[in-house]
């Protein structure tokens, strides 16, 4: 944690210095708050804190800090903006509830706490997200310092979770696809500085989950998982929900380079076959190449 904080701090200092040197050039653009057309390629990363209560895995709450990497492309003009973004996250959320719990069997499974690097008090998770946004400017005719955008978002999320049931290593693979109405607010302090807030929540979604397990790792090759069963279906808001709340700050370092700092709260809920809720809090820094 100390190292991550230090790196973020150094980033901020570096770009503050860089921005001062570029200030003159940018100030010239202050009268014109936003380019009429703008395309950006964004690369970023950050930290992500996940809290998950997946009753399929266990009844316990698991918490864990993870890393996040994202890449995206976006385009905007005065009337519309759209973006495609991909992000990858990895976690090992843990629960304290198993502390002190022991078991032993007649076979060679006594006091087993770990199989293939998975511990019995943790879930190894990976998340892949593909995010497509399409937004229209709502207040096109008002002054452009405060902008309201509305539109739709298509979010596809793949989640893998590895966990133990005794010495059986389980793997679930989930696919969430959801359609979200979306509202986006932007406040441009000037050409350099912009705050934005984004809120979207799913109305309809498709969810599927494969259950696989790795039987008896002591005896068999671990590379093969066996598909055991599958849940899938299309669900409305009462059964499935994905909500995303993003607060961000964008800082133009040069005319062609911007830095974004954003905090995101993402809530996932699926009620089949058993209630699963997941909250992710992400703090990311990204750099955009603007052209």
């Amino acid at each position: 944690m100390k190292h991550i904080s230090l790196k973020i701090f150094l980033f901020l200092i570096s770009y503050s210095i860089l921005s001062s040197s570029m200030a003159q050039e940018i100030n010239e653009l202050d009268n014109n708050l936003v380019n009429t057309q703008e395309t950006e390629i964004t690369l970023g990363g950050g930290i992500n804190y996940l809290t998950i209560k997946d009753n399929v895995v266990s009844k316990f709450v698991y918490n864990g800090l993870g890393g996040i990497f994202n890449i995206g492309i976006s385009h905007r003009n005065e009337a519309i903006k759209y973006s495609f973004a991909f992000n990858y996250q990895a976690f090992r959320p843990k629960t304290q509830m198993f502390k002190g719990f022991e078991y032993q069997g007649l076979l060679d499974t006594a006091n087993l706490v770990s199989v293939n690097g998975v511990k019995n008090n943790e879930i190894q998770s990976e998340i892949l997200e593909f995010n497509t946004n399409f937004l229209f400017r709502v207040n096109k005719n008002t002054p452009s310092k405060f902008q309201i955008w509305a539109g739709m978002k298509l979010l596809t999320t793949g989640i893998t979770k590895k966990f133990l049931i005794f010495d059986h290593q389980n793997l679930t693979e989930e696919r969430w696809t959801s359609f979200h109405p979306e509202v986006n607010l932007e406040y441009h302090l000037n050409y350099k500085h912009r705050f934005y807030y984004n809120l979207d929540a799913s109305l309809l979604g498709f969810f599927s989950r494969d259950y696989q397990f790795n039987q008896k790792p002591f005896y068999f090759d671990n590379s093969d998982y066996l598909v055991l069963s599958k849940d899938k279906g299309t669900y409305g808001l009462s059964k499935m929900m994905v909500m995303n709340s993003t607060l961000g700050y964008r800082f133009l370092i040069t005319r062609f380079l911007a830095m974004n700092i954003q905090y995101q709260l993402i809530y996932n809920r699926i009620a089949v076959p058993l209630e699963t809720r997941m909250v992710r809090q992400q703090l990311t820094t990204s750099f955009s190449f603007v052209f």
Binding site: F60, Q96, M97, V279
Partner: peptide, 29 residues
């Protein structure tokens, strides 16, 4: 305030409450 939001969505486990934790472990297992 937003950071605290996770507790609104998912209540934490009662880890410190040992009888409850033991019950939860037993039931869950």
């Amino acid at each position: 305030g937003i950071m605290a939001c996770q507790k609104l969505f998912i209540a934490p486990d009662e880890v410190a409450n040992q009888p409850v934790r033991n019950f939860e472990l037993f039931w869950n297992d």
